[in-house]
Computed example of a mutant assay.
Amino acid sequence: MLKGLFQTASALLLGAAFATAAHAADTFEAGTHYFAVEPPQPTSTGDKAEVVEVFSYACPACNMFQATMQKLKAALPANTELVYLPASFRPDEDWPVFQRAFYTAQALGVLDKTHDATFDLVWKDEGTLRISDAKTHKPVSPMPTIEDVAKAYAKFGVKADEFTATAGSFAINTKMKRADALLKAYGVDSTPTLVVNGKYRLTAVSAGGIDKIAPLVKFLIEKDAGAK
């Protein structure tokens, strides 16, 4: 009960942060709190504003950031869509495998079931896809494979052989290459990173803290709408 009340209060506070963002707009400066993406990249959300989260399931900071992302998603304006972009630039931490897992789950229509759950599979002590030892925190060897992901996803109604076959398909390989190209175009070199409307890049650090993310995202959405 208390947990539910806390979550509700947190969502209301984040919503309030969006509502009052305009009053703090003059505190956000290009080159300090956010960075222009040059050249701007096309969005995938049509007439809606787009907020992209660049992440990896194997990124510890991304795991910690999920509570913030869930609140942000709930508080985004109605004409805004959240898009996930999995990164692969840390093969030493198995990021390409988890990038492939993301796009495979998306292709099979189970991403809504697997997305949050995969963070738990990687980071909870009993998780079956851990990339580090729960006690020593040293990298495990070998790292999880796409076959391991397929077995772990069986509880979400996915057949292991279908998952691995899809994971190795031309369509998934193409999506991964496009994702890598888009990451470079965005200028992303760390995770988690947010990109607004393909034009503005920010992190919690650049924003000035977790509590500044919501008003900064709101400011950038309004800034772009005003420019149009």
Rank of each mutant, 00 (worst) to 15 (best):
L129P: 13
L82D: 08
K212A: 12
T174H: 09
C59I: 03
A24F: 06
M143N: 11
R90L: 13
D180H: 00
T193W: 06
E81V: 14
A117D: 13
G209I: 04
K212Y: 09
F18K: 03
T166N: 01
V195N: 07
Q99T: 12
K3D: 12
V149K: 00
A67F: 13
W123Y: 12
D47L: 10
V195T: 08
K124V: 04
H23M: 14
A75G: 10
D189C: 02
G198T: 00
A185L: 03
A87I: 03
T68L: 09
F35P: 06
T191R: 04
K228H: 14
K73F: 05
D116Q: 12
C59V: 13
T20S: 12
V205G: 05
E162L: 02
A107W: 01
L182K: 14
A22R: 07
F35C: 05
A16H: 10
S169H: 04
F119C: 06
T114F: 01
A87G: 12
A67D: 13
A167Q: 06
Y186K: 09
L129I: 11
K175E: 15
M69S: 13
P96W: 02
T114R: 02
T118D: 01
A9R: 09
E29I: 09
V195R: 02
M64N: 08
T20N: 11
E222S: 15
D148I: 08
L202Y: 09
A227E: 15
D47F: 00
C59P: 07
A75T: 08
A154E: 13
